[in-house]
Amino acid sequence: MIDIAGVLAANFLYVILITLGGVLVSGSVHFVPVGGAPAAMAQATGIGTGTVQLAAGAGLTGLVTAGAMLNLTDSMALILAAGMVGAMIMIGVTMMVGNLVYVYGVGVPPASAKVDYDPITKDRQDIYVSQGTEGHGLPTVSFVSGIIGGGLGGIGGALVYYSLMSIANGMASADFVGLAAIFAVGIFFVNAVIPSYNIGGTIEGFHDPKFKKWPKAVVTSLIVTFMCAIVSVITIGGL
């Protein structure tokens, strides 16, 4: 039988770090300009797919880059940086290609319907929004917001994975990597879905009024990830 209290006491730092990683993922989703189905028809600002797919795409790329860095070094800062850059590149490429499709394929100018002037470039937005739509494409502010979101999500995913990989255990390394990876993926998905319910499907970035709802998702993620972290630390530490 596993010595549950002993394992938890020895690895309590990692429980905290995993929880922090999950909370970062949950917060990061609020930065990503998710347009959902309306954006796929160029009727809302953002990338034309759901929160979970975007967060998973960026976050799992972050996990892959963090895992690659974990082969080379034990430095936590480098691993987190690798995860951050990987996720930022992934979300950046997604947004850039999306914008190319919106501008040259659909033929709409990137415009936000939530603000009259882009907070970063001060460009006028409202006159470029087509009638009957809630904006289209990815204006500069949404792009910058998305990059920030990808970075935070990548750090979060890498932090969860690094913490899981740091727990002392008696497994063969191939088994351990598989176990830690699938735990990280599970925790990541839970924390990507919770904020998507909070923002109700679409958000434009940090300038969107819905962004102010982030504390609700973060509190929910804090509680849920803490449970998942305890469960995963007991599992890995006890083997």
Binding site: V190, V193, G200
Partner: peptide, 17 residues
């Protein structure tokens, strides 16, 4: 408020842990 796929991914995220 968001797509149906989110809830399936949530189910399997909780389920795998």
């Amino acid at each position: 408020g968001t797509g149906v796929p989110s809830i399936g991914m949530l189910a399997l995220g909780m389920g795998v842990v």
